[in-house]
């Protein structure tokens, strides 16, 4: 079942009409090509119109769109010869975090990302993309491996949050995230992170400390989900659209605050309408940002990573 968001419905109707005309052409041999072309022009115009005025809440829904490409979809297109590696060597293997060795245009890289599931069974196996401590520890283990052999790290961020359950608490979810934040800051190889869907708070940040942070056009990045924010602010999760507005969670906002370095464009109508093209755009962005980082000395690389984070934040000086 394809999911159609409310604001996508006019497009879906046009798509159905175009399909019907194509069927008539095929079945009855009647030439409807002119009508089809006209409808397709309408469709594109409508898409442009709708996507020009998306609200932050629309973008939140797009970032969570069930047909949106996930980390493994991007890996398949962007990299060659991906060898997935498993486990944190301490407790287990977390299905919500995948990682492994891969080649980006003939250059070896370590790829790590949060992974959501498509069907019910896979969603459960992936825990809806919510990583447990062993997921963050697996990610860190692979980063150390990359560092040992001088391979850069690329991470894909797509999680509603870190797993908040009792088990995760028992195994130190906070410690696992905090350690990653500190260790990624010190890693001696370049790190590029791409927010491809939901950048859910500390759970996202736990694999997203990087020299360059890229963010897809319709991804979101937030300190709290809009529903949670609305529940706290107005005791009403239904006011999530307002909260999404207030939280400034869009890619453009993140760029403005210096949290991300580039917004990576998506195909018209969002990545889910053309996953291949979306992956190509991400690949081009990676190829643009990674090579200059690989030319830096370790000292310079880490110093500029520190400065990047050191300067984040907006505060003021008290008048007195």
């Amino acid at each position: 079942m394809r999911t159609v968001l409310d604001f996508e419905k006019p497009i879906a109707e046009l798509d159905a009409n175009i399909e019907a005309l194509k069927r008539i052409t095929a079945e009855q041999g009647i030439d409807k090509s002119e009508e089809i072309a006209a409808l397709e022009r309408d469709r594109e115009r409508l898409l442009r119109e709708i996507f020009r005025k998306l609200t932050p809440w629309d973008r939140t829904l797009l970032a969570r769109h069930p047909q949106r490409p996930y980390t493994l979809d991007y890996i398949r297109v962007i990299f060659d010869d991906f060898v997935e590696l498993h486990g944190d060597r301490q407790f287990g293997d977390d299905g919500a975090v995948i990682g492994g060795m891969a080649w980006l245009n003939e250059k070896p890289v370590m790829v790590i990302g949060q992974q959501k599931g498509r069907d019910l069974k896979e969603r459960q196996r992936r825990n809806f993309g919510m990583a447990k401590p062993e997921g963050y520890r697996k990610a860190l283990r692979l980063m150390y491996l990359a560092e040992k052999f001088g391979r850069p790290v690329i991470t894909f961020v797509d999680t509603p949050a870190a797993d908040p359950g009792v088990e995760s608490e028992s195994r130190g979810i906070s410690e696992a995230i905090a350690r990653n934040l500190r260790e990624m800051m010190m890693l001696k190889v370049p790190i590029v992170s791409v927010v491809i869907g939901e950048g859910g708070s500390g759970g996202a940040l736990g694999i997203a400390v990087a020299d360059r942070v890229l963010m897809q056009e319709y991804a979101i990045y937030s300190v709290i989900p809009p529903e949670g924010c609305a529940a706290i602010l107005w005791r009403d999760p239904k006011r999530a659209p307002e909260a999404a507005e207030a939280l400034k969670l869009t890619a453009q906002d993140a760029l403005r605050f210096g949290v991300v370095d580039e917004v990576v464009a998506e195909p018209l109508g969002g990545a889910h309408r053309d996953p291949l093209a979306a992956a190509q755009m991400v690949k081009e962005a990676l190829l643009k940002h990674l090579p200059p980082l690989q030319k830096l000395s370790v000292g310079k690389l880490r110093e500029s990573r520190y400065e990047r984070y050191r300067n984040l934040g907006v505060w003021t000086v008290a008048a007195e």
């Binding site: 934040l181 939280l247 969670l249 984040l312």
Partner: peptide
């Protein structure tokens, strides 16, 4: 702090940078 959105989230990384 929710009221500073993503900027608050980034303080997690910033403080851990100094801790590093």
């Amino acid at each position: 702090r929710m009221q500073e959105g993503l900027l608050s989230l980034m303080q997690m990384a910033k403080t851990c940078a100094a801790a590093a």
